[in-house]
Simulated scan of single mutants.
Amino acid sequence: MHFWNKGTWWKALLLVAVYWVVYQLLGFVINAIFGGVINKENPLADPLTVLVGLALPVLLSGGLLFLFVRSVGWAGEVFGRQPLQGRAWMWLAVVLILVPIVLRLMATNWSAYSVTLVLVTLFFGLCVGFTEELATRGIVVNMLRHGGYGECLVLVLSSLYFALLHSGNALTGQAPLVVAITVVYTFGFGAMMYLSMRVTGRLVWAILLHAATDPTTFLATGGIDAHGDTSGAEGLLSIAGLFNFVYILIALVAIFLVRDRVNRISSTYREPAIASEPTN
Rank of each mutant, 00 (worst) to 15 (best):
R137D: 06
G138K: 06
V140F: 03
V140P: 07
V140Q: 05
V140K: 05
V141K: 15
V141Y: 08
N142I: 13
M143E: 14
L144K: 12
L144A: 10
R145F: 12
H146V: 13
H146L: 15
H146A: 15
G147R: 05
G147H: 10
G147L: 07
G147I: 09
G148D: 13
G148W: 12
Y149P: 11
Y149F: 14
Y149I: 13
G150V: 11
G150Y: 00
G150P: 12
G150D: 13
E151T: 08
E151F: 11
E151R: 15
E151H: 12
C152R: 15
C152P: 11
V154T: 14
V154Y: 03
V154M: 13
V154R: 12
L155R: 08
L155H: 06
L155F: 08
V156K: 07
V156W: 09
V156N: 00
L157T: 08
S158W: 09
S158M: 06
S159K: 07
S159W: 11
L160A: 15
L160Y: 10
L160C: 08
L160T: 15
L160V: 15
L160S: 14
F162K: 05
A163S: 12
L164I: 15
L165F: 09
L165K: 01
L165D: 01
L165S: 10
L165R: 02
L165Q: 11
H166A: 01
H166T: 08
S167P: 14
S167N: 10
S167D: 00
G168A: 12
G168S: 14
G168K: 03
G168P: 09
A170N: 02
A170P: 08
L171M: 11
L171S: 00
L171E: 00
T172S: 14
T172N: 13
T172M: 12
G173C: 01
A175D: 14
A175I: 05
P176R: 04
P176N: 07
P176G: 00
L177R: 04
L177T: 08
V178N: 03
V178M: 02
V178S: 02
V178T: 10
V179E: 07
V179D: 03
V179H: 02
A180T: 04
A180M: 10
A180L: 09
I181E: 09
I181S: 03
I181Q: 04
I181R: 03
T182P: 09
V183F: 01
V183W: 09
V183P: 04
V184A: 09
V184M: 03
Y185P: 02
Y185G: 03
Y185K: 00
Y185C: 04
T186C: 08
F187A: 05
F187N: 02
G188H: 00
G188D: 01
F189C: 01
G190F: 05
G190R: 00
A191V: 01
A191P: 01
M192K: 06
M192C: 08
M193W: 04
M193P: 05
M193K: 00
Y194T: 09
S196G: 00
S196E: 02
S196Y: 01
R198Q: 12
